[in-house]
Design a protein around this nucleic acid. Structure first.
Lengths: 217, 217
DNA sequence: CCGTTCGCGTGACTAATGTCACGGCAAATG
DNA sequence: CATTTGCCGTGACATTAGTCACGCGAACGG
C-alpha cells in the first residue's frame, strides 16, 4: 500500500479519489543507481511515475551509438512507457537510474481506465506527452542545427539545472557518449572552456565556474 | 455540415455517435498548395484532421534553418495541434500544404470532451501521439547517427512511399532544405547515385530507378 | 611495491560537410 | 528577341568532427 500523503505532495494535481485508487492499485518499484528501468526492445506492461531519484532517458541504436534525450525527476512520468503500454508495443528507448530511484508502477489496465474516470489523470498524461514531445523537439533542434561546442554548453547548463550543483559528477567519456561524439573532441572543447575560465576539470568531475553569461538557447 | 459517409471511410475506427457528433460540430477548412496550416509561434485553438491532400510538418529555427519531420496524410491528425490545443500553448512547428488540402477543424472543447465520451476518439488521439513520437524518434536517430548519404537515401525512399510515385516533384534545393544541408552537398551525393544508375535527375524532378535493393533502415 | 586498468590529454591525420565563386541552361518576362 | 531569374553542377577551399597512436598519472589489487 502506497502512502497517500506522499502521493499527494508529489502529484498535487491528482484528485482525491485518484490518489486513493492509485495507492491501492499501484506498486512501488526500486532501482539501484546504474540499473536499467527500460531497455530497447523491451515490452512494456506498466506505466511508471518517478517518486524518488533521477532517471536518464536515452536512445541507443544497434551499433552501440547513443545519445541523451532528457532526465525524469520525481513527479514526472515516462511518456514513452505510457504510449507503448497503450499500444502493447515494444519500447525504443533506454531508461537508466542515475541515482537510486523509486517509481510507482501502474498496470496498463488502470492507465486506460483512469483516463475516463479521473480528469486529473487525463490531463496529467496528456501534459506528460506534450512536455516530452517538446523536450525531444529541443533536442532535435540542437542535433540538427547546432555545432558541438554549442551543444556542449547547452548540455552543461542542463546538467547544472537538473542536478542543482555546479560540481557535476560526469566524466569526459560520459559527456562524449551523451552527445554521441568522441572523447577526444569533447576533451578539446572542454579545454577551450577551461582556458577561458568557465569551467574547471577534475578526474570524473567537472566544476562549472561561470556559464551563465554565455546566455545561450 | 460534414458528410458522415466520408468521415466514416477516412476514419473507420470512429464509432457511430462520434461521427454524427463530429459532423455537426466540426468545420471544414481548405488550404491551397503551399499555404501554411500552422506557423511557429502560432496559438492553436483547434485540432486538425486531414481529409484530403498532403501536409508537410517541419521545424524551423530563428535563423531560417529548417528540417523535414514527416508528412500527414488523409486519415491522420496533427498530434502537435492536439497537444498544443490541450495546453493552450503556442506551436513550435510549421505545417504546410504540399498539395491542395482539406482538413476538419475540431474546436478545443470537443477534443477534450470526446476523450471521455468516445473510446474510439480516445484511442485515436493516443495513437496519433504515439505514431508521431515514434516518427520523430526515427528522425532523430537519422540526424544523430547517420551520414548525409544514408539520410538522403532514406529521404528518397520515404518520398517514394508517401507520394506513391517514382518521379518525385522535388528540386535539389528543396531536398537540401529538408535535410538541413546545402544544395551543393546534395547535388554531389545525387550525382553519385545517378552515376550508379539508381536515380535520374531532371530539373525540379527526380526519378527513382532502383533504390529498393539498397535495403537501408 | 609493482603491474594493470581507467580516465584523460594531445598531436597528426582523415573524413564529412559547409562555403565561395563561377558558369551553364532553360523558362519566364518584358 | 534580349534580359532576367531560378535551378543546377563543379572546382577550390575552410571548418568541423572523428580516428589513430601514444603517453601520463591516479587508483586499485595482488
Amino acid at each position: 500500500m502506497i502512502d497517500e500523503t506522499k502521493l499527494n505532495s508529489l502529484f498535487p494535481s491528482f484528485e482525491r479519489n485518484l490518489v486513493t485508487d492509485m495507492a491501492g492499485k499501484a506498486t512501488i518499484r526500486e532501482f539501484a543507481a546504474g540499473q536499467l528501468l527500460i531497455k530497447t526492445g523491451q515490452n512494456i506492461r506498466a506505466t511508471m511515475l518517478i517518486t524518488k531519484g533521477l532517471v536518464k532517458i536515452y536512445r541507443e541504436d544497434d551499433e552501440g551509438n547513443e545519445f541523451f534525450m532528457y532526465y525524469l525527476q520525481p513527479g514526472q512520468a515516462c511518456a514513452l512507457s505510457m504510449i507503448c503500454a497503450t499500444k502493447q508495443e515494444t519500447s525504443e528507448i533506454m531508461a537508466r537510474a542515475v541515482t537510486d530511484t523509486e517509481s510507482i508502477s501502474i498496470p496498463l489496465e488502470y492507465m486506460d481506465k483512469w483516463m475516463t474516470e479521473y480528469k486529473s489523470w487525463y490531463h496529467f498524461v496528456l501534459e506528460s506527452y506534450r512536455a516530452r514531445f517538446e523536450e525531444l523537439l529541443v533536442t532535435v533542434d540542437h542535433i540538427a542545427f547546432r555545432h558541438m561546442d554549442e551543444r556542449l554548453l547547452f548540455y552543461l547548463q542542463k546538467q547544472q539545472d537538473t542536478l542543482k550543483t555546479r560540481r557535476l559528477p560526469v566524466s569526459v567519456t560520459e559527456i562524449a557518449a551523451d552527445l554521441n561524439s568522441s572523447r577526444e573532441v569533447i576533451s578539446r572543447l572542454l579545454k577551450k572552456l577551461a582556458d577561458k575560465g568557465y569551467i574547471r576539470m577534475e578526474k570524473n568531475f567537472l566544476e562549472i565556474l561561470d556559464l551563465d553569461f554565455k546566455g545561450l538557447v
